[in-house]
Amino acid sequence: MASPPESRPPRSQGHHPPQDHSHVHIHDPESQKRLLNRLSRIEGHIRGIKTMVEENRACPEVLVQVAAVRGALDKVARIILDEHLTECVARAANAGDIEMELAELKAALDQFL
């Protein structure tokens, strides 16, 4: 009797395993708190859009709300990128680790853009 094939959980599209960082990203706790608050508001906004769809609200109304969420996510991305450039890249440059940091940033931007 043949043994069953190994089952692996399917990888979701867009999911990438964490990279093996030889350096640590340390973020200001207050900044992290602000980002988490923004993301919580976005999460609530998305639940609101889901409710709109469930209630068969007019498509233009839903699209306006989707655009608002996209804008809010773009703002979060800009904040993260700004912090990364001013904190993480600067720290890597001071530590003499700039090439790896820039390579990671370029790879992330390739996926983001």
Score class of each variant (00 low, 15 high):
V64F: 04
S40H: 14
P60N: 07
D74F: 08
Q19S: 14
L63G: 05
N37C: 07
H84R: 06
P4G: 00
R41M: 11
P9N: 06
H21A: 08
S12H: 10
A108H: 14
A108Q: 09
D20Q: 08
G14F: 09
A77Q: 11
D97S: 09
K33R: 10
L85I: 12
V62C: 02
S12Q: 07
R8M: 12
R41I: 05
D74R: 09
D97T: 08
D110K: 10
P18S: 07
H84M: 08
A2V: 04
R57V: 15
R78Q: 15
R34K: 09
E6K: 06
R47P: 05
P60Y: 11
F112T: 13
D28C: 13
P29S: 11
V69E: 05
V53Q: 04
L73F: 07
H23P: 01
L73A: 03
A92M: 00
R78G: 14
D74K: 13
A72D: 06
L85Y: 10
I79K: 00
P10Q: 02
P5W: 00
R91T: 07
Q32D: 09
R70N: 07
E43Q: 02
P4V: 00
D110W: 05
A93T: 10
V24E: 11
G71C: 07
A72P: 10
E83S: 12
G14H: 01
I26S: 07
D28W: 07
E43N: 02
L85P: 03
V24R: 08
V66Y: 04
E55I: 01
R41V: 08
G44N: 01
A103K: 13
R78P: 10
V24A: 12
E83D: 15
L109D: 02
L73Q: 01
R34S: 09
I42C: 07
A77Y: 05
L105N: 01
A67W: 00
A2F: 06
H25G: 06
V24Y: 05
P29K: 01
A107Y: 06
I49L: 14
S40A: 15
E55T: 03
L81C: 09
S3C: 04
R8P: 04
I80Q: 02
A103Q: 14
E30T: 06
H25I: 15
C88V: 12
L73I: 10
D20N: 11
R57A: 14
A67D: 12
L73K: 00
C59Q: 04
K33W: 03
Q65Y: 04
H27C: 10
P60W: 11
K50E: 14
A103N: 11
G48T: 09
M52H: 00
A72Y: 08
A95H: 06
P10T: 04
I79Q: 09
L39G: 03
P29A: 12
T86Y: 04
S31D: 09
D28M: 07
H25P: 00
E104F: 09
H15S: 13
I98C: 02
H16V: 15
R38D: 13
Q111N: 07
E54V: 05
S7P: 00
N37L: 13
A77E: 06
I80C: 14
L102I: 14
A68G: 10
A108E: 12
P29V: 12
D82N: 13
K106N: 11
P5M: 02
A93G: 03
D97M: 09
L102C: 07
P29G: 04
S7F: 12
D20E: 13
